[in-house]
Design a protein around this nucleic acid. Structure first.
Lengths: 136, 136
DNA sequence: TTAGTAATCTATTAAAACTATAGGCTAATA
DNA sequence: TATTAGCCTATAGTTTTAATAGATTACTAA
């Protein structure tokens, strides 16, 4: 299941991209437009800023804005920041690899075998989609 | 993330398929061979039996055995029983569809748009793999 | 028919992750 | 200098996951 955090984060990014202005947009406006709890969204936007997706401006007339062009923001990086690993099992993760406690040999593990394929197919989708592609 | 339940369930199924005997295999043997908590595995095998994947025999010489041929057990059905919906969001689920509380229009929702593609690519993998394909 | 074995079932708990909220702080602007 | 709006930390509530305990039932073989 996709976490609410990721879902809300994606919606917020899409909203900012669709507005297509360099002016900062306030959290309250995004929250209202996308039906999201404002305080929760606040923390999500913060992590998006810390990870280089958003810029912010404080004080009156402040808010958040996209730093890059939507077409230059691949879903792979957005998903990794918001949702974490794309792989469903650490032992097939490219960026978050970890060996399983059980499982003496990954090459003979049926779960590994299956989840490797799932990861690859998901990766292909995320690589083929930028933020620009999500705007309808 | 894949739940342990699904992971263990897949491993147990693979083990039974690899043994390729009609004789019942005891929970204890499966648990030991796959490094799984026996009690936890117990409940997993129970749901697999209730969902038509396994048969069981009680008493001495009892245990679990596959009801169908491994090549006739598609990963789509295994995953749906163990892990639940294949889709990451209910609004793109084929078998567990549900409308989102927020989101007035699915057709204009960026999350829906992206997750539809992810679901389709995952489905393709699961449809192309049967239990027989997981045995190395 | 009885002793022993192994699955079945119910209930409960422990831990972790997720979602959300509260409230004070800091920086920018008018 | 008052107001606005993001920044930050802590924490609470809920749900899900993972695991355990213990009693019961069905089957087999002696």
């Amino acid at each position: 299941m996709l976490s609410k955090k990721t879902k809300y984060g994606l919606k917020a990014l899409t909203y900012l991209a669709s507005i297509d202005s360099k002016e900062p947009i306030q959290i309250a406006e995004i929250a209202k437009h996308e039906n999201i709890s404002q305080k929760f969204l606040e923390s999500i936007l913060l992590t998006l800023r810390r990870n280089g997706f958003l810029g912010s401006k404080k004080g009156k007339g402040g808010g958040y804005y996209l730093i890059k062009e939507p077409k230059d923001i691949p879903m792979t990086s957005v998903m990794r920041v918001l949702e974490g690993p794309i792989a469903m099992v650490p032992c097939v993760s490219l960026n978050f690899y970890e060996k399983c406690d059980d499982c003496p040999d990954e090459n003979q593990c049926s779960v590994n075998k299956l989840m490797l394929q799932v990861r690859d197919s998901a990766l292909e989708v995320y690589r083929n989609n930028t933020l620009a592609d999500l705007i309808s």
